[in-house]
Amino acid sequence: MGKIFDTIKNNILIVIALLLALIPVIGVPSYQFYIIERGLQNAIIVISLVILLGYTGQLSLGHAGLLATGAYTYGILVVSYNVNPWIAFLIAPIFTALIGALLGIPSFKLTGPFLVVTTIALGEIVRILILNWEKLTGGPYGLTGITSIISNSKLMFYLILIIVYFISVATSRLSVSKIGLAFKAIKEDEVAAEVMGVDVKRYKLLAFTISSFLAGLSGAIFASLTGYLNPDSFTFADSATFLLMTVLGGMSSVPGAILSSLAVTALPEILRFMARSRMVIYSLVLLLIIRYSKQLSSVKISKFFLKKKNKEDLVVGGGE
């Protein structure tokens, strides 16, 4: 039985992946193509929040700072130090993971709004450093001429897709593993987790580190896609948007995270006909989604996946 559910679950991810894989084949106009790429790139940072918030219960509003760390690490290495893009692509998430581990330290002591404010402050510190460290980052003028990992745009698309797919499978496995259970125990009851042998500090640090690694990876892809970086892309509002994508996706569902990232990334573009008011409408929609998230949950796509996932959780425990 377990195997069957396992296959179904993996199939959902495969179905999404296969549908997306068709996109370069059918030939989508280049701007829309770019938006889908950005949606997938956002999916990576949203999955990073699924692990941190959905599993471990730690709310971060500083992820734009981590995205920036990954993006600028890649950009600076490639532009100023002529590092091979592939090597830069490897270094960026690792460096971000180190920075993110620092972000995790306050979580040893702080919870709720106390921790959230700390993450906002750390995110802002990163942004201000980027803004003022002009020699290295280009400051307010930005960093231009960043070469992509792969110049062929179709191949780039497939690279991103493969990365997202791999991360999704890995995250789903993490979710049902010993580590995932320790994360969820921390979310629900830190004292119970600790007393049952979970080294809560270590696991929180692990959650922040994994999450930051993925945020940094997303950042490196972002830099690679846009070719240009500017501190304005990494504000509190961006952190907020990632968080909202996570909530919309159901907080702890990986397929939900992917779909909501694609949808929310495309939303401002779909609303483009409304010209200037589109961002207002877009944020209003997000407000309403939160307000009615309980009512919506009965029909919400994310819930569908969550239910699947829960069953799956049980089955890994061995079906009768």
């Binding site: 509003l61 509190f236 944020s283």
Partner: peptide
């Protein structure tokens, strides 16, 4: 409570826009 808190974050984005 985390969702309500995120609601205030969404409100912040809405007001800014």
């Amino acid at each position: 409570p985390q969702i309500i808190l995120i609601g205030t974050v969404a409100l912040s984005v809405f007001i800014r826009n």
